[in-house]
Amino acid sequence: MTLRLWIPIAAFMFQGACATTKNTGPVVAVPSLGAEDSAGAIRAAEEVGAAHSPEAALHLQLAKEQFEQARRLTSPDDRPASTRLLLRARADADLSLALTRENTSKLEAQAALEKVKTLNDSLQQNN
């Protein structure tokens, strides 16, 4: 039951996963979600400057906290909970990255629009 619920999530979190459908439900060749995957997502968010954007920084912080919680769960019995925490950490890290890129793109768009406006003003003055 638990495995069937988590399969689609893991499939979305890892591009390249190959899914097929059988009568008993989805059977997915799911790569194991290691701590390094979440750690890599966190590093990626940090590298694009997530710490400088308030909303992205919040999700980056959440990702780090959940990652640390997952690392503290070392018992084999805690593995499902650890995996879920790592998935949450990964989701927050990816969201932090996406928000940072959105912020950067919006700034670029604003700068581009300003440039167009400046050019328009210049043209109107020359005409």
Binding site: T2, R84, A91, D92, L95, A98, S105, K106, A109
Partner: peptide
């Protein structure tokens, strides 16, 4: 807890798509 975690991840996934859409929109504007 599975439901909660799934909902949590679903919310983040949706927000990621929204952010990516905004990014694409900004790229179009640029």
């Amino acid at each position: 807890s599975e439901t909660i975690d799934l909902a949590y991840i679903a919310d983040r996934t949706i927000q990621i798509v929204e952010a990516q859409a905004q990014t694409a929109l900004a790229a179009q504007t640029v």
